[in-house]
C-alpha cells in the first residue's frame, strides 16, 4: 500500500481528569474520504483539534507525508496544507464573504502601499467568487457580510473556504449540521469533488446515511478509543449504529 497522506499514532489527550482520547491511531490516504463517527462526547472534536493543530496531544505523534510534525498552532497545519472546518463554524460574521475566504491569506496591492499591508480588495472579491464557484458553492456576492447570509449559506462559505485552500487534507467537523436536505446534498457533492482533486477528507457527522453515502472508510470512536476502522462497504445503517452505541462489538 502507498504511504499514508496523514496519520496519527497512539494519540492520547486528556482535559484534566477527563480522558478524551486514549491510544488513537488513524491513517488517511490521498483521494480517500474517512467518516469519523461516535456518540456525543466520544472524542471526535478532540481528535479534530489534534489533527488541525488547535490542541497538542498529551501523547503520540502526528505524521504528514511520512514526516513527523508538531503543530504549534492551527496556522502551522494550515500552511502545511491541512484545512479544518470547525464545528460551530469558524467564520467572522462581521466580515464579507471574500474577507473570510482570504482571512490570514490576504492579497495586497502592488508597491509600497502593499508592503504597508493595504489590501487588494477587488481582486480578493473576484478570486473568492471564483474559488467558491470552483468547489461548487454558489454565493451571491462575495462582498456581502457573512452575517447577512442564511445559516446554510454560511456553512457553505466555511466549507468552500476550507476546500478551496486545502492542498492535502481537509477536516470537516459536522459540516451538514443545521442544513436542509438540499444544502446537505450540496455539501456531500463538495466532499466528492474534493476527493476527485486527490485530497484526503475526514468527515465527521451524526447523520449516518450521509456518512454511508460519501465515505470510503469509517472509523468509530467510543469513549476516546477507536472501536472500529473498516471499509464503508462492510457497514449498513444498523450495524454502524450498533457499533457506535456499543450494542455490537
Amino acid at each position: 500500500m502507498t504511504q499514508p497522506l496523514y496519520e496519527v499514532r497512539d494519540v492520547s489527550k486528556s482535559y484534566g481528569s477527563v480522558i478524551a482520547l486514549s491510544g488513537v491511531s488513524l491513517k488517511i490516504h490521498a483521494g480517500e474520504v474517512i467518516g469519523l463517527v461516535g456518540d456525543n462526547g466520544a472524542g471526535k472534536s478532540t481528535l479534530v483539534k489534534v489533527l488541525s493543530g488547535a490542541h497538542q496531544p498529551s501523547e503520540g505523534t502526528v505524521i504528514l507525508e511520512g514526516t513527523e510534525r508538531k503543530w504549534n498552532s492551527p496556522h502551522d497545519a494550515l500552511v502545511a496544507g491541512v484545512e479544518t472546518l470547525y464545528q460551530d463554524s469558524g467564520l467572522a460574521p462581521h466580515l464579507s464573504v471574500s474577507a473570510n475566504v482570504f482571512l490570514g491569506r490576504e492579497r495586497y496591492v502592488k508597491g509600497l502601499l502593499g508592503k504597508l499591508g493595504f489590501l487588494a480588495q477587488k481582486e480578493m472579491d473576484r478570486v473568492a467568487h471564483e474559488n467558491l464557484d470552483r468547489v461548487g458553492i454558489a454565493v451571491p456576492q462575495s462582498n456581502r457580510s457573512v452575517s447577512q447570509l442564511s445559516g446554510g449559506q454560511r456553512q457553505a462559505v466555511a466549507i468552500g473556504r476550507a476546500v478551496s485552500w486545502a492542498s492535502k487534507v481537509i477536516i470537516l467537523d459536522e459540516p451538514t449540521n443545521h442544513l436542509g436536505a438540499r444544502q446537505a446534498g450540496e455539501v456531500l457533492s463538495v466532499i466528492k469533488a474534493a476527493k476527485e482533486r486527490g485530497l484526503g477528507v475526514i468527515f465527521i457527522s451524526h447523520t449516518l446515511p450521509h456518512v454511508l453515502q460519501v465515505t470510503d472508510r469509517i472509523v468509530v470512536l467510543r469513549l476516546g478509543k477507536i472501536v472500529a476502522d473498516a471499509p464503508t462497504s462492510t457497514f449498513d445503517a444498523e450495524s454502524l449504529l450498533g457499533t457506535i452505541t456499543g450494542l455490537i462489538d
Binding site: 492551527p74 500552511v79 467564520l91 462581521h94 466580515l95 499591508g117
Partner: peptide, 28 residues
C-alpha cells in the same frame, strides 16, 4: 482610517472582534 478600513491591520482587528477563534484558526 485607511489602516483600519483598507489594510491588513484593520482587517485583522475586525476579525478578532467578530470571532477571535476564527481569527486565530486563520493563523492571525
Amino acid at each position: 482610517g485607511f489602516f483600519l478600513h483598507k489594510a491588513r491591520f484593520g482587517r485583522y482587528i475586525y476579525a478578532i472582534g467578530s470571532n477571535e477563534f476564527a481569527a486565530r484558526a486563520a493563523g492571525i
